[in-house]
Structures are given as C-alpha cells and as structure tokens.
Simulated scan of single mutants.
Amino acid sequence: MADQSAPQDGAAKAWSGRFSEPVSDLVKRYTASVFFDNRMAAQDIRGSLAHARMLARQGIIGAQDLADIERGMAQIAGEIERVEFAWNLDDEDVHLNIEKRLTALVGDAGKRLHTGRSRNDQVATDIRLWLRDAIDTVLGLIREFQLAVLDLAEHHAATPLPGFTHLQVAQPVTFGHHLMAYFEMTRRDAERFADCRTRVNRLPLGSAALAGTTFPIDREFVAAQLGFDEVCFNSLDAVSDRDFAIEFCAASALLMTHLSRLSEELILWMSPRVGFIDLADRFCTGSS
C-alpha cells in the first residue's frame, strides 16, 4: 500500500527513491507548505495520538511504542507552544516535521506511528479538525456579537431613527429595530456555519493514500476519539474532497459581508453630516 511506512532517516525525501539528484532550493520553497500549514500542528498531534491509540488497541503496535509516542508528542507539543520547535523547509510540511522530530526523540516507535495511514488521509483529517475548531470559535464569536446587539437593541427599543433608501430619508424606525437586522443576518450566518460543520465532521483517516489499508484498523474508534460524527465512506472521495473547505469560505465571505455592511453604516452614522453616533478615538483610524 503506497505511502504507509515512515520516511527513512537522513536528508532524502520520503518519495525520493527514483530521483537521481537533489531538489533545488527554489523548488523546495515553492512546493513546501510547512510555514503556513504549521498552524495545524495541534490538530496533527491530536490525530496522530488517536491513530496511535487505535494501532495499540488493535495490536498493530506494542504498548511500549504507544507510551513512547505519547511521551514524544507531549514534548513536541510543549516545544511548539514555547516557540522552540525548529520548522524545517526540507521536511516540506507540518506532518513530516512533527514525525521527524518524534522519530528523533523516541526512535523506531515514531516510524511505526505511520502504519496504516498516508499523508493523504492525514492532511485531510488535520484540515477537518482545524476547520471544526475554527467553526466552533466563529460560532462563539457570533454568539457574543448577537448578545451585544440584543443588549443594545433592548436599550434603544424606543430610540427613533430615520430609515433610509439610497441615503434618502424614507420611513421612521427605531435604533433597536435597525440593530436587530444584524442579529438576523448573523443568525443566518450561524446556521450556515453549523450546517457546514456537519459535513466537516467526518473522519477520512484510514483511507490511506486512496484505497484503504490491509492493516486491521478501527476507524470508528478513531472517529470517537476525535469527536467525529461518522467516517467518510469512500476512500477515494475522502482523500480528495475539499468541498467542506469551500463551504467554510463561502460562509465566511457572507459573514464578513454583513460585518462590512455594519462597519460602513457606523462610518456613515458618525460622519459630521449625520452625527447619529460617536465612536471613541481608540476604535478609529485615519482615512489613508
């Protein structure tokens, strides 16, 4: 099964067996992702630990290997948190950087961690974990925003405000009623993120490179360990699907459109010709 064993020691790439000369530095810089995908380090470690516990539970690796992997990963997580971890361009991405450091710390146990998986299903899992965390953070922030809007709208439920069409005074409303329009917009935003989360929260790990693995793995156990609702059912789709990421981007774009709309209204409302509100200088900048 392709790409299911750990890379060999030394400077050679994991895939470099058939190449006759080293990769140029220009190509390394162009193809490496480590300096932006290292933001997924915590998710990569979580996924690897769940995978290791499953391998031990299935008897594929020994208890001592698992203990060594857990010890090594704890040290790596600490190094990353303290900004002491040395990210290496030659190791291409977050996954190989962490795996190489783990192997340096715990030896062959680090190599055996990659049994029954590929970077293909590993990166797909990391992205889903990262996006799930991001969605949960965004939903929390939306909730905080809505509570602030509700509080302000209740306070100004009877404060008159002209309603405009194309910057022309149209009908009277209240400031509270106007604010609640943004509550409704962000309620739809929250619904979109929650709906996206249901498709994000499916486990691709266990699909290996693209066709599964012959090792007797337990994908449902890993899914439960990582809090996934279910596993991805087709291995080819599991390693190639990024629909959920596009959905996240679309939901984010709509949320930012609504927040941009509010920001523009605040700019209009505090302009000298309108003067509905006053913003403290600490929240303002110059026009350029």
Rank of each mutant, 00 (worst) to 15 (best):
E220I: 08
I135V: 14
C196Y: 12
V173M: 13
L147H: 15
F164K: 03
R219T: 02
A157R: 14
D218V: 00
T174C: 07
A170V: 04
A134I: 12
G140A: 12
T165Y: 02
F215N: 13
A181N: 01
T159R: 03
P204H: 00
A134M: 08
L167K: 11
W130L: 04
L129G: 00
R199D: 08
F175G: 06
L205G: 01
R192H: 06
I135R: 00
Q168V: 11
W130C: 02
G176R: 04
R132P: 03
D218T: 03
S207P: 00
H155K: 12
F145K: 11
T198D: 15
H178N: 06
G140Y: 00
M185R: 10
R143F: 10
L203W: 08
A209T: 13
R132G: 02
E144C: 13
A148Q: 08
Q168Y: 09
A190P: 00
D218R: 03
R187C: 15
L167E: 08
F175P: 03
A153N: 04
A153K: 01
V200G: 00
D218I: 01
A211W: 09
E191M: 07
V173N: 01
A157L: 15
F221A: 06
A209H: 07
E154Y: 15
I135M: 03
M180C: 09
L203S: 10
D136I: 06
P172E: 13
R132Q: 04
T214Y: 01
D195S: 06
A157W: 11
D133K: 07
D133P: 05
T174L: 05
L150S: 03
T198G: 12
A148H: 15
R219H: 03
G176E: 02
L141V: 15
T137R: 08
R199W: 14
P216L: 11
D189P: 00
C196T: 07
H156F: 05
R187G: 15
R202A: 11
R192Q: 02
D133I: 05
V149C: 02
F215C: 03
L141I: 14
D151V: 08
E220L: 15
L210M: 07
V173W: 07
M185N: 13
A170M: 09
L179D: 00
F164Q: 13
T186N: 05
Q168A: 15
T186W: 06
A208T: 12
T165C: 13
H155Y: 08
L147T: 08
V149D: 12
S207F: 01
